[in-house]
Computed example of a mutant assay.
Amino acid sequence: MSTEPVKGPASYFPSIEKKYGRPINEWKQLVRDRLPAKHMDLVSMLKGEHGMGHGHANAIVAHVLSAGKG
């Protein structure tokens, strides 16, 4: 098991779950359900419809979109 700290968008996931009370997989599914869409449109959806802060919304969207490119 790696002792490296989590970096990038995933480093926000524990605080997102704690602050907004839903598992990260639910947030990621909300984003996937809106695809295809532009990055900032997805960020705006999380902020406007779910009251999420910009940094948290951006982290989830970035993670989902980067996973789709792999």
Rank of each mutant, 00 (worst) to 15 (best):
S2H: 13
T3N: 13
T3I: 13
E4V: 15
E4C: 12
E4W: 14
P5E: 12
P5D: 13
P5A: 15
P5S: 14
P5G: 10
V6G: 11
K7W: 15
K7M: 13
K7F: 13
P9V: 15
P9A: 14
P9F: 11
A10G: 10
Y12I: 02
F13P: 11
P14Y: 14
P14R: 10
S15V: 15
I16D: 03
I16V: 15
I16G: 02
E17R: 09
E17H: 05
K18T: 09
K18H: 07
K19I: 14
K19C: 08
Y20D: 01
Y20H: 06
Y20A: 05
R22K: 11
P23D: 10
P23C: 02
P23N: 05
P23L: 05
I24E: 05
E26H: 04
E26A: 12
W27E: 04
W27S: 06
W27R: 02
K28D: 00
L30Y: 04
V31G: 08
V31N: 00
D33I: 09
D33H: 00
D33Q: 10
D33N: 07
D33F: 01
R34G: 03
R34T: 04
L35G: 07
L35K: 09
L35M: 10
P36C: 08
A37D: 11
A37I: 01
K38T: 00
K38M: 04
H39D: 06
H39Y: 13
M40G: 00
M40F: 08
M40V: 03
M40R: 10
M40C: 00
D41Y: 10
D41V: 09
D41L: 08
D41G: 11
D41P: 02
L42T: 03
V43H: 03
S44C: 04
S44W: 02
M45N: 00
L46W: 04
L46V: 06
K47S: 01
G48R: 13
G48Q: 09
G48V: 05
E49M: 07
H50N: 01
H50A: 03
H50P: 00
G51A: 04
G51P: 01
M52W: 04
G53W: 01
G53F: 00
H54R: 07
H54W: 11
H54G: 01
G55E: 05
G55F: 14
G55W: 09
H56N: 06
H56Y: 09
H56S: 08
H56V: 06
A57N: 01
A57F: 06
A57W: 07
A57P: 03
N58C: 08
A59T: 05
A59E: 04
A59Y: 04
I60S: 01
I60A: 00
I60P: 00
V61I: 12
V61L: 04
A62S: 15
H63C: 09
H63A: 13
V64R: 05
V64S: 02
L65P: 09
A67V: 14
A67H: 10
G68F: 10
G68E: 13
K69F: 11
K69T: 15
K69S: 12
G70R: 15
